Amino acid sequence: MKKLLPHFLLLICLTLITFSCSEDAEPEVPGIVELQDNIDALELYNVPYGTDNRQVYDIYLPENRNENTKVIILIHGGGWVSGDKVSMLPYVVTAKEELPNYAFVNINYRLASEGVSPFPMQLDDITAVINHLKINKDEYLISEDYGFIGISAGAHLAMLWSYAYNFDNNVNMVASIVGPTNFKDPNYEDFVDPTFVYFNITPSDSILEQYSPYYNVSASSPPTILFYGGNDPLIPNTQGIDMDAKLAELNVAHEFTFYEEEGHGWVGDNLLDTWEKIIAFINTHH
């Protein structure tokens, strides 16, 4: 999704401001409990949720939030072996403008390497993020209502966690931008097997199904919005098309946008279209 960044960075003047809570001094009035009328916005960076230096997140808390403030979690791509939350900053900036009442959490997660599998390590990291948010929800003043936006491998993780690990039903929606959905797809065989061998995983049918959103989605899965490109050199067209059909078969609320001439990322009008549809989907389902 590297092609996304230049377009967004031209559109957005990136200014990150950390607000601190303040309180005006008022004379005490006996018998009256003073309530704080305004709660300032707050941004916290590299909050640790585990012991590894990759297990950190940035959180952007809106002003005047309360225990009902909903949360959107962003997951970067990078083929499970690379990438960083910094690539999602343009999304954060735009989302804060379009969805000023939401809290945003931009996460890093442990990266896979030769002999070190991303599964279930990276899914466990998402669980750890969710648990950390729940533990600190009173301090942050947020709810336990979550949504996901993921790109590429991050979209795969977002979907898979929402379908297979969302045991408390806290996820209201998930957005996948060019995320892999089905590792058993015959069109995916040419590069799935080498990838899994690199991770020291024997790509059996059961393993491929276990880590494929396509085989974990159910009728009770959260609403899902999908975006795929017809000329994507990494993600076969069937990944999005078949996932769309599966969601329709299960009557899961969803939307599917297929840009026939786009690849593994896009700019211009289609990028703006993607973002407008995600904002509308969040407003409807989250």
Rank of each mutant, 00 (worst) to 15 (best):
I72V: 11
I75T: 07
I75W: 04
I75G: 06
W80L: 11
S82F: 07
G83M: 06
D84L: 12
K85L: 10
M88G: 10
M88Y: 13
L89I: 14
Y91W: 15
V92W: 03
V93Y: 12
V93S: 11
T94S: 14
T94N: 13
T94R: 14
K96Q: 14
E98R: 13
E98K: 15
E98L: 15
E98S: 14
L99I: 05
P100Y: 13
P100W: 13
N101R: 12
A103H: 04
F104G: 02
N106G: 08
I107H: 04
I107N: 04
N108K: 04
Y109C: 04
Y109W: 04
R110A: 09
L111Q: 03
S113M: 09
E114G: 06
G115L: 11
F119M: 09
M121I: 12
D124V: 02
I126V: 09
I126C: 03
T127P: 07
V129H: 00
V129L: 00
V129I: 05
I130S: 03
I130W: 05
N131V: 09
N131G: 08
H132S: 13
H132G: 10
L133A: 08
K134V: 09
E139Q: 15
E139D: 15
Y140A: 05
L141R: 14
L141F: 15
L141T: 13
I142R: 00
I142T: 01
E144W: 02
Y146Q: 00
Y146C: 00
I149C: 10
G150Q: 11
G150E: 07
I151C: 12
I151K: 12
S152C: 08
A153F: 05
A153Q: 06
L157D: 00
L157P: 00
A158F: 03
M159K: 04
W161H: 04
W161V: 00
S162Q: 08
Y163M: 02
A164D: 11
A164L: 06
Y165H: 10
N166G: 03
F167C: 14
F167S: 15
D168Q: 15
N169M: 10
N169C: 10
N170F: 03
V171I: 15
N172R: 13
M173R: 04
V174G: 02
V174S: 08
A175R: 04
S176Q: 07
S176N: 12
S176W: 09
V178K: 13
G179H: 02
N182Q: 07
D185R: 07
D185I: 08
D185H: 07
P186A: 06
P186T: 02
Y188T: 03
Y188I: 08
E189G: 06
D190V: 15
D190W: 15
D193A: 14
D193G: 08
P194C: 07
P194I: 06
T195P: 01
T195R: 05
T195N: 05
V197E: 15
Y198G: 08
F199A: 02
I201R: 09
T202F: 14
T202W: 08
P203M: 08
S204A: 05
D205F: 06
D205L: 09
S206L: 10
I207S: 11
I207A: 15
L208C: 09
E209K: 12
Q210D: 15
Y214D: 07
V217G: 03
S218M: 07
